[in-house]
Write a protein that binds this DNA or RNA. Structure first.
Length: 207
DNA sequence: AAAAAGATGTGCT
DNA sequence: GCACATCTTTTTC
């Protein structure tokens, strides 16, 4: 496979990056690289092209809306802690945001596959690059993320990393309503890179 | 204890 | 575009 070299794995984003307001973190995650080290030692992953923000207040679509439960506890963890939940027998991955133990997180919805594409194809049993991580549950399947990874902390584990890439200009970012929710549908808290072929659904209008 | 809902994906029409 | 498989958590009785 013709893959570009891995980004510098020592330059990871952590507590500080995820401390910002959740919608800001969701925007800033676009264009960043999400990488996961397999047991074999191989790093696989790609570029984040779609995210959604779930707020700690005034957001009836957020899992944290009705307070702390065993399921959503990771949302209330320090910034940069992984929150994995199950939906329709599949998994979705988020990162906790904001300090102070508020329940907020950013859902990673889609990835442009770059590294370990053959591994992702094997895990997904699909060859089409557009079907590897163009949705939050596909993404988790591609990277072998499941409930056992809930509540891990980016600051203290070595096999998962988010690394800065080429800067995305604000004019390249499109905001839309979030996908698959029935409440708070009016909030523009889904963000994607304009024109990306790997978003879960194409963008309709530009900002 | 039971039932419904859900930040989804797939396959078929 | 629509139905539905599939399973965990939450809500209700």
């Amino acid at each position: 496979m013709d893959e570009p070299p891995l980004p510098n794995l020592r330059k990871r984003l952590g507590r500080r990056f995820f401390s910002a307001p959740t919608a800001d973190v969701a925007r800033r995650l676009l264009g960043k690289y999400l990488l996961r080290k397999l047991d074999s030692g191989q790093w696989i992953g790609g570029k984040i092209v779609e995210t959604e923000a779930y707020l700690h207040s005034n957001d009836s679509a957020s899992h944290s809306y009705r307070g702390l439960t065993r399921r959503n506890a990771a949302m209330f963890s320090p910034p940069g802690v992984v929150y994995v939940y199950t939906i329709h027998a599949k998994h979705c991955m988020n990162f906790s945001t904001e300090r102070g133990g508020v329940g907020a997180a950013v859902l990673i919805r889609a990835l442009e596959p770059i590294w370990g594409i053959d591994e992702m194809q094997r895990k997904r049993e699909k060859s089409d690059l557009r079907k590897l991580a163009s949705g939050p549950a596909m993404l988790c399947q591609s990277l072998s993320i499941d409930l056992t990874h809930n509540a891990i902390d980016l600051e203290t584990i070595d096999w998962l990393a988010i690394i800065a890439g080429k800067k995305i200009s604000p004019t390249e970012i499109i905001a839309t309503s979030r996908i698959g929710i029935s409440r708070a549908t009016e909030l523009p808290l889904r963000f994607l890179i304009s024109g990306s072929l790997f978003a879960s659904r194409p963008a309709k209008k530009s900002l």
